[in-house]
Amino acid sequence: MNPDLHPDIAAHLLIRAGSGAMLGRTPVDPREAAMLWKIIGIVAVVWIALAVIGALLEGLFPILVISAIVFGLYLLYKAVSGSGNSTVDKL
């Protein structure tokens, strides 16, 4: 046993070295871990936002198409009806 090395320091160094060696990697810096979680969080938020927008567009698209068809039929009816009080050109 080395007289210059305190037992508590030796135990601390052994535990620190062993924690990284158990998985075959070096210990991770807490700042790097925080940055990794930030990136994962941003990706998750963007993914959820795109899923919500996609669901809304998928649900609202048929309503948009039907309303465009009805509006076009209304304009066609007003143009063909020949009434002197036509407001088609005043849209």
Rank of each mutant, 00 (worst) to 15 (best):
M1T: 10
M1K: 14
N2C: 06
H6S: 07
H6E: 02
P7R: 00
I9M: 06
I9P: 01
A10M: 05
A10L: 10
A10W: 05
A11L: 12
H12C: 01
L13V: 07
L13E: 05
L13K: 06
L14C: 02
L14P: 00
I15K: 15
R16T: 10
A17L: 11
G20Q: 08
A21V: 10
M22Y: 10
M22K: 14
G24V: 05
R25W: 00
R25D: 09
P30S: 02
P30F: 04
P30E: 02
P30H: 02
P30I: 03
P30D: 03
R31L: 11
E32C: 06
A33R: 09
A33E: 15
A33L: 12
A34T: 12
L36Y: 13
L36R: 13
L36T: 10
W37D: 15
W37P: 00
W37G: 01
K38H: 10
I39T: 13
I39G: 00
G41F: 02
G41T: 03
I42W: 07
I42C: 04
I42G: 11
V43C: 09
A44W: 05
V46H: 01
A49R: 02
A49C: 09
A49I: 02
L50Q: 04
I53S: 15
I53E: 11
G54Y: 02
A55K: 03
L56K: 11
L57V: 12
L57H: 09
E58K: 09
G59Y: 12
L60M: 15
L60P: 01
L60A: 10
F61S: 14
P62I: 11
I63K: 09
I63A: 13
L64Q: 07
V65Q: 13
I66C: 03
S67L: 12
A68P: 00
I69E: 04
Y74C: 07
L76H: 13
L76G: 11
K78D: 05
A79H: 11
A79W: 08
A79G: 12
S81W: 09
S81Y: 03
S83N: 09
G84K: 06
T87N: 15
T87W: 08
V88D: 03
V88F: 04
K90L: 13
K90F: 09
L91T: 10
